[in-house]
């Protein structure tokens, strides 16, 4: 599913060059539930941005579904994100002016074949995450855990093969965070969706089948 080898990323901050990723190699198979864990500043957010095709590495190679994606143009990367990757963010990132249902449908706006996804499909996903009775509510009328559930339904709307979650429970209390983790585990076990969770929390990492630990820009074996 994901095949990263020798991924390096450096930034110029003024005259100095900072190496954030110093050669990360990581394979993730289809159907895995894996967490990438490490302290803040270890480069895991940068790695997540690269896996999510939101950023490009300085060097290395990255295959997604057996296709090298590093030399793909920007429009094609947008398409790959839309079709293959469901994003879940720490701050939920729902649009405040849209209802829960409209937020779930948002990614469909960027597909030519949106017509084959019915409103019922989106409602079904809200039902799947236990939010069907809140379909008409705005994000400001929902709790953090509820917003994250809506965000997960949005991540599922294009039937992605991969869910990429960046500190998905970071803004939630332990109980609610636990429920969100259960949802990820269900989606992984029942639908076979590959789930990659970026976290600094060992409690979250422990619930995954595999943990990749990052330190100072590399994955420690």
């Amino acid at each position: 599913m994901l095949r990263l080898s020798e991924i390096k990323k450096s930034y110029h901050i003024g005259p100095t060059e900072v190496d954030v990723l110093k050669g990360v190699s990581l394979n993730v198979d289809k159907g895995e539930l894996i967490s990438i864990m490490g302290p803040s500043g270890c480069g895991k957010s940068t790695l997540m941005n690269i896996i999510g095709l939101l950023d490009r590495p300085t060097s290395g190679s990255f295959e997604l579904n057996d296709a090298e994606v590093l030399y793909t143009n920007d429009d094609a990367l947008s398409d790959i994100r839309n079709r293959n990757i469901g994003f879940v963010f720490q701050q939920y990132f729902l649009l405040s002016k849209l209802s829960a249902l409209e937020n779930v449908e948002l990614p469909l706006m960027y597909r030519d074949d949106a017509a084959k996804f019915t409103r019922e499909h989106s409602m079904e996903l809200l039902r799947r995450v236990g939010m069907a009775d809140r379909a008409g509510h705005r994000p400001s009328e929902l709790s953090g855990g509820q917003q994250q559930r809506v965000a997960i339904a949005r991540a599922l709307v294009c039937n992605p093969a991969l869910i990429l979650a960046d500190e998905p429970t970071g803004a939630l209390d332990t109980n609610v965070g636990g429920e969100i983790m259960e949802l990820f585990k269900e989606l992984n076990a029942e639908e076979g969706i590959t789930v990659v969770i970026i976290t600094h929390d060992p409690g979250i990492a422990r619930q995954c089948q595999r943990v990749a630990v990052m330190r100072n820009g590399v994955i420690v074996p």
Binding site: D74, D75, S78, D79, R81, R83, F87, L106, Y110, R111
Partner: peptide, 10 residues
Amino acid sequence: RRALGAKRGD
């Protein structure tokens, strides 16, 4: 919107 698949043109 960009993360969810919007292109620059969108």
